[in-house]
Amino acid sequence: MFPHLLLLLLAAKANAQKYWFSFGDSYTQTGFVTNGTEPAVGNPLGNPPYPGYTATGGQNWVDYVTTVDNTSLVLTYNLAYGGATISAELVTPYEPTVLSLTDQVNEFLDSYAFMREPLWESADTLFSVWIGINDIGNSYYLGGDRDAYADFFCDVGARNFLFVNVPPIDRSPLMLAQSTSAQALEKSVIEGFNSKLTVRVASLKANHSDVTTWIWDSNAAFTAILDDPTCYGFEDATTYGDAPDIFWGNNYHPSSYAHAYFGQDVAAVLGGFI
């Protein structure tokens, strides 16, 4: 085969159409519903209209990675739901209608898990989970069998996993209004949660040799910006509102402008997979 033709074929394969099933909470949600418009060329996130119903308005990291920070056509099924905990039976969400990670997985099972061959294939599909913020925020609880979810995904053909740890929400304006002891306790619990996540991701990889895993360290990404906000174009580490130089969109969620950095970070971690 001619060398230049081989390079073209390899480039075409690298940039082939990819699929993304995303799970999480308000840091990830775009308001997608399984009975709405499906993702397609020209509308890669399906429903609702872009950028969707995000926590602070505007694009979030899923929007950016799907439409900007990628090397492929990415069709994203974003099952994340605002307020989600790992399991509503373990940590009660703020409203009973909130879809926990358990509920989101069941939605995937009912709607997409058994459409693997006609819709998605193991090699070209990413599964991401960013969960734990509300588990910690609501009760400082570390429960939830994430191992069981990972095994389930493997059973239905998932092979590429992106996990995201919990950011330093102890530094959010909401928590800065609380006592220093509450902030210190939350920081300690976050560190424990993130440490366990790292161990479990390593275990998943060890137990499934055909699985590829990535971890986006959101905690480090947030910390880098909050420690030196002006270096990233933000006014400070505590103000919240809707302006290009504001990191926090409200007192608990980063702004769309912050999410632009997150999208770039995630794309770098994935190394061109999508």
Score class of each variant (00 low, 15 high):
M175Q: 07
A184G: 02
Y140H: 12
A113M: 02
S87L: 10
T180G: 03
A158E: 01
I190F: 00
K205G: 06
N165G: 13
W120G: 03
D151G: 00
R171W: 13
V98N: 07
A184N: 11
F193E: 10
V156R: 08
T92D: 10
P96N: 09
L176C: 12
S139E: 15
S122M: 01
T67C: 14
L162H: 02
L174D: 12
S172E: 05
I131T: 11
N138V: 08
V156G: 06
E117S: 09
A88H: 04
A150K: 10
C154F: 07
Q178A: 13
R116H: 01
S172F: 04
S87K: 12
L162T: 07
L204W: 08
V91A: 06
R171E: 14
E117N: 11
D135H: 08
E186G: 02
L162Q: 07
D103P: 04
Y149A: 13
A123G: 06
R159T: 07
I86H: 07
K196R: 10
L174S: 09
L119Q: 01
S179H: 06
A206S: 10
V68D: 07
V98L: 07
Y81M: 05
Y112C: 06
N138Q: 10
V189L: 09
R146P: 04
C154K: 13
L75S: 06
W120Y: 10
P173H: 09
N134D: 14
F127T: 01
D151A: 09
L90P: 01
W120N: 08
T71R: 11
N207V: 02
N134P: 07
N165W: 13
T198P: 00
D135I: 08
A184T: 10
N160W: 00
S72Y: 03
I86F: 14
G144D: 02
F163E: 00
D145T: 04
F161Q: 03
A158L: 02
M175F: 06
L126G: 05
D69L: 05
Y81H: 15
P173N: 03
N70C: 09
N165F: 13
T102W: 12
T180C: 04
T71N: 15
F153L: 13
A150Q: 12
S72R: 09
R200I: 00
D110S: 15
P93V: 03
D147T: 12
V91R: 05
T102C: 13
S87D: 15
L174P: 03
F161K: 01
V166R: 04
V156E: 04
T102H: 15
L79W: 05
N160F: 01
S111F: 15
A184H: 09
L185Q: 14
E89S: 15
G132H: 03
Y94T: 15
E107N: 13
L185E: 14
A148W: 09
D145I: 03
G137I: 05
R171G: 03
R116I: 06
C154M: 11
T76M: 02
D170L: 01
T102L: 11
T92H: 07
T92I: 13
R146D: 04
L101W: 02
V201S: 08
I86R: 14
S188I: 00
R171M: 11
A80N: 07
S128F: 01
K196L: 12
L90T: 07
F108E: 05
A88N: 15
F152I: 08
N194F: 02
